[in-house]
Structure formats: C-alpha cells, structure tokens
Amino acid sequence: MRRLSVLLSLVSLVLVVGACGAEPAPAPTTTAPPPPTTTPTTPSAVGGLSPTDAAYVQLAIPQAESALPLLDAVRARAQDPALAELAARAGVGHRGELTDLHGVLTRAGLTYLGEHEAHDMPGMITRDEYQAADRLTGAEFDAEARVLLRKHFEESVAVARSELEAGTDAGLLALTRDLTESRADYLSKLSIP
C-alpha cells in the first residue's frame, strides 16, 4: 500500500511538473522543421530534466533528509560500534547526495518544492518514528534503528529504480546509480544480530 502511495505521488508530481513546463504549441510555419538533434529531448522537459527526472529529485531530497536525524542519533548513541560506523558513513553519504540533488535542480533552473516533507511515504523516516526510536536506549534503540534504516534504504532503492528505468538526464542517472549502489552497500552491512 505504501509503495502504491509513493508511485501515485510520483505520477502526480510528474503531471504537475509536466504541466508547469508545457510550452504553447508553435505557430504554423511554412518553413521546413529543423533537422533532428543528436540529443533526445521531450516536449515536456523542464530545464533539461524530463518530468520523471524532476519528480524523482523532488522526492529523493525529502527521502534522504528524513533519515538524517536518525543517522545522527545512531552515530552518537548506538551500542553496536558497527551500526554507529554505518550511520556515520550513511550520514556523510546522504549529505553529499543532497548537495548533488539540489545541484541538479539548480542546473535545471528549478526550485525545490518541498511537497513531500513530513509525509509518511515509503522510505521516509517520519518525525513520530524518529521520536519513538529516540526514546529507546541500548539494544532496543539499536534494534529499532536497524528496522527504520533498513526500510529507508530499501525504499529509496525502489524509488531510484523508477528513475533508472524512465529518467533521461545523464547526470542524474549517474547520481541515481551511485545512490543505489551506496544503499546496497549500507544494506549489506546492516546486520541484524
């Protein structure tokens, strides 16, 4: 059900971004159309990003941001040193990804809309989930953190797959592949004792 929710949100964002970036039909002309370019473009592209690209960035940013409070808490408080080290690496990685994702929007001349902030969507660690985990200590805190981080990493990979399958921007696709690989690495190290 939550995956359906994220897909519906992604589709609605694609429609909104597509509508915002739609250009009026050109006036009829008697001259021949220009020759095709070697760079594929879509008529609904916005700032060089396809609607899928733009929708993915608008969702990936809050998804990564939602994990930062928990990653910071785990780094500081985890009883398991391996979990604390993983959280430290993931925190640095997420902050780098956020810089890059905002850079994609800037390059395209787009603004981050923040439409999904604080939503309870797959891959997002909600404020309530974070606060519930933060009240725990010791092994209980570590166990709940593992559950939340696993869900976050898995769902962010699922959302990234949509971009990898339908996105068109080469730079964003490379960033998304890196993000997917880092999440797979984090998952492989997220042991459950």
Rank of each mutant, 00 (worst) to 15 (best):
R3S: 15
S5P: 04
L10T: 11
L15E: 10
V16E: 02
G21M: 02
G21S: 11
E23Y: 02
A27E: 15
T29P: 03
P34T: 06
P34N: 01
T37R: 14
T41H: 09
P43E: 11
P43D: 12
S44L: 12
A45D: 14
L49C: 03
L49Q: 03
S50Q: 00
Y56F: 15
Y56A: 02
A64Y: 06
E65F: 02
L70F: 04
L70V: 07
V74M: 13
A76L: 08
R77P: 05
R77G: 04
A78M: 12
A78F: 09
Q79A: 14
L83T: 13
L83Y: 09
L86S: 06
R89Y: 04
R89C: 07
R89D: 13
A90V: 14
G91L: 07
T99W: 01
V104H: 03
L105A: 00
G109P: 00
L113R: 08
M121L: 15
M121W: 11
M121G: 03
M124L: 15
E140H: 14
D142T: 05
R146K: 14
K151Q: 14
F153Q: 09
A160Y: 05
S162P: 03
A170F: 09
A174N: 09
T176V: 08
T176C: 07
D178Y: 06
S191A: 15
I192M: 07
